[in-house]
Design a binder for these strands. Structure first.
Lengths: 109, 109
DNA sequence: CTATAAGTTAGCTATTTAGCTAAGTGTCTT
DNA sequence: AAGACACTTAGCTAAATAGCTAACTTATAG
């Protein structure tokens, strides 16, 4: 039942996974390079990578014994769009409210 | 250990909770008004509201027997900022790469 | 050809999450 | 004062998540 945007936000709700995004923005990297510096067992870390891949954030390809992860094109688009759209609606509403307050201020008996 | 941004993304990873955000953008609403149309028991629904309040997305106040929820000022800001910043970095990198590819194209023997 | 390196798979535990029902607490309304 | 209304609390279950170790597979290096 959980759809893509659920998985997207869920993937970003963990600091380990956000760190991976930040690292991958600088370019593709192998599992062990990504794992470096994370104080957790490799299989645990690999579960995070799987979550990220399932969420559409990243893709991976294997060559020889090394698997390389990379950001996916437009990975951050859908979530950013959702947030920007809703933030815009919210700010528009705040605007209307403050204009209304202004008006009531100016026209008070 | 889970920090505010974890909770923020986690709160938005559920469709029920995103629907509540959308409803609250139109203005504050009482628990039962928010609950309307969601096919789940009220206590279950209230847990979602608690998650949202803990995440900093919304606040609530109680007057008489009615509790009213409202969007919090700048609720969507932190998450939108994170995403926009990272998307920008990513797109800048893509730009550099495509300029590089161009250059190699033009200077090939 | 053996050893090491890079992942992977399997299987376990603890915690969190999402759902439920039943019963309780105040606050209106009549 | 009684009943209805709007939550709230308590306590349960099932499934998902995050972590671990141990053992396995497949490349590459020597």
């Amino acid at each position: 039942m959980t759809n893509q945007i659920d998985r997207f936000f869920s993937a970003l709700s963990d600091p380990t996974r956000r760190a991976v995004v930040e690292q991958l923005i600088d370019g593709p990297a192998a599992v062990s390079a990504l794992h470096d510096g994370h104080a957790m067992a490799l299989p645990t870390f690999m579960k995070h990578l799987k979550v990220m891949e399932d969420s559409g954030l990243v893709t991976s390809t294997k060559k020889g014994r090394v698997r390389t992860y990379q950001m996916r094109q437009d990975a951050l688009r859908a979530g950013a769009d959702w947030l920007n759209a809703h933030r815009t609606m919210w700010e528009a509403r705040m605007d209307r409210l403050s204009r209304l307050a202004d008006h009531m201020e100016r026209t008070r008996s």
